[in-house]
Design a protein around this nucleic acid. Structure first.
Lengths: 339, 339
DNA sequence: CTGTTAGCGCTTTCAA
DNA sequence: TTGAAAGCGCTAACAG
């Protein structure tokens, strides 16, 4: 715990009897060949003195930090999972990931944190959704730092080098088909306007599912934050509907629905069928367990990092499309397992 | 998106017709006074040229990065919440927080990430639990970077400047008392050995609660990962016990218990009462809603950051104790609301 | 109040 | 294969 000043290459060089350039070559650079003897001397000196590279100095010197910044709305649930996979993928590519939140889509915090990241001269930026508008973003990231959006639809190429988007629309569309197939004769979509852009995608998918049914079916669209789910459920089942199908914004909303149904004595899946999204832990341990759409994190994270590497000029590009859509996969559990 | 090289103080100085030192004084330093005229010229030039401070260079020059590193087991649930509050507290103190995970207590990943943080010359480190042993930690953090532990009991002063620990033991102890008071005539503790140190604290509290009961009561201790909760519940209620009290490791485990009870038709809270820990979102939306112990994040995060500031030599110290215990507060919900 | 100058620790030509 | 030296952008004495 003593305030020891860290040892530098200067000291290592002195101890090894070589120049600092040589130390730098041996320790921190690949490709540059040195004699076995020199390598041995340098490594031994470094080891013995407890040398630890100063990446701040290295970053300044090379004007390249090997750091990637990530902005997510919060660390919770799906966002946190994504961050974990991104961290791993970044590491495998030789980069480090600095994770910041936007305090649940707070444009001020978001802006401030992006600014911090830019001041740190991160090599690239990954932003999940974005509370700021596109103009705001453009003026902030005007310096050429590559930006990859996650769940950002329709961002122009001069702002973002690309986007990796989850196939929410497809998942909701298919949920509708599946619920109807399972015998539901009326449908409800329970959204969450708290995340507007993302909610929109899902709603769009819900409508698409309705449209491709080939026939009309009663449905309603409500918001998790505005209505009492118990009331909605009771009213729906009091009507002509024998079996209601419910598409929930995510698994948190789905669990709320399950709880309300349990409380009201509504039988799942006989009277009510539910699909969630995200495949959160609570979907698995709920009773009845919730059918949900799971996210292929490795693919999502890998694609995002790859787009960045591509922008850095390092190859290994898996995909060329600017907006890449990651498909979700259905995990069927008890809230729909009725045939 | 063009690869513009960022503007530096040199260019701002030229545009403003002053020296780089003056620019530095005006833009990046507090306390140093300049004439109004100079300030105006410099700020205008900076604004117009789009100057953004390079904190990498500043960090190198001052040998102080104003960065704090945080290691948590994962971004999920409680850990993610904590990270969010720490980020806020750090920011308020003029620092930035870089968050890394240890991949669920993986000593290798943990070590690697701490090493990365140290290479970045963070001013301080906050570690949540730690998979590595104390010796390992000592040799890694031997350079004088202050380390604050979260939920680390018994760390010597030469490794960690202090610790901020949650009062799990107290919460579990009080849970026992409360459950018995609510009429439970036998108890179960369902732990999670996946997080050994933390589990131990809780178990200790459970035993303490038992001890201060003043009389014997049947109990059992099981592990969430080793047993089938349904079996445990059925067996317990098949015995002489009229009402079982269950102390769950956290709200995830508590929700598993609630689900099992719902499935078996066990009535909550008449036959079974449950307490969780963490006050996770799922405790609130479960049915029945789960009584849980909530964590005072602002206090916990604030104390941790404060200990670091103290170690940095900046004052504003709220507490002197090396190991500070943060008390949890009980949120009573339906799983115990029976009198 | 402002400018000169010597670093911070490392990387990277370019010669030797 | 190795080393001398010029930066990278900013800060912090120290003079003026």
């Amino acid at each position: 715990m003593s305030k020891t000043k860290p040892v530098t290459i200067v000291e290592v060089a002195a101890a090894a009897g070589v120049s600092i350039a040589t130390v730098s070559n041996v320790l921190n650079r690949g490709g540059i060949r040195s004699s076995q003897e020199t390598i041995r001397k340098v490594e031994q000196a470094a080891e013995q003195l407890g040398y630890r590279r100063n990446t701040v100095a290295a970053g300044l010197s090379r004007s390249k930090t090997f750091e990637i910044g990530l902005i997510i709305p919060s660390f919770g649930g799906y966002y946190g999972n994504l961050a974990e996979y991104l961290q791993l993928e970044a590491y495998n590519a030789g980069y480090h990931l600095s994770v910041f939140t936007s305090g649940w889509f707070n444009p001020l915090i978001e802006r401030k944190n992006i600014e911090v990241l830019l001041q740190r001269r991160v090599d690239g930026l990954i932003c999940h959704g974005l509370a700021m508008g596109q103009e705001s973003t453009r003026s902030l990231v005007n310096n050429g730092t590559p930006l990859v959006m996650i769940n950002g639809w329709g961002w122009p190429a001069d702002i973002a080098v690309g986007a990796v988007n989850l196939g929410f629309a497809g998942a909701c569309r298919d949920s509708v088909a599946l619920l109807v197939e399972r015998g539901c004769d009326s449908l409800i979509y329970v959204g969450s306007k708290r995340s507007s852009v993302i909610n929109e995608q899902r709603l769009q998918g819900f409508y698409a599912g309705l449209a491709q049914l080939g026939r009309d079916i009663p449905y309603q669209v409500v918001d998790n934050w505005e209505v009492d789910i118990e009331v909605i459920l009771r009213d729906s089942l009091a009507g002509a509907s024998e079996r209601v199908g419910l598409v929930a914004f995510d698994d948190v909303v789905a669990l709320k629905v399950v709880s309300a149904a349990n409380k009201l004595g509504i039988r799942i899946p006989e009277q009510l069928q539910i699909t969630g999204i995200n495949n959160d832990i609570m979907a698995e341990i709920s009773y009845p367990a919730i059918s949900s759409w799971s996210i292929p994190y490795p693919l999502q994270a890998g694609t995002a990092i790859n787009k960045l590497l591509h922008a850095f000029g390092q190859q290994d590009v898996r995909t060329e499309e600017r907006e890449f859509e990651v498909p979700l996969s259905f995990i069927e559990r008890e809230t729909t397992k009725f045939m």
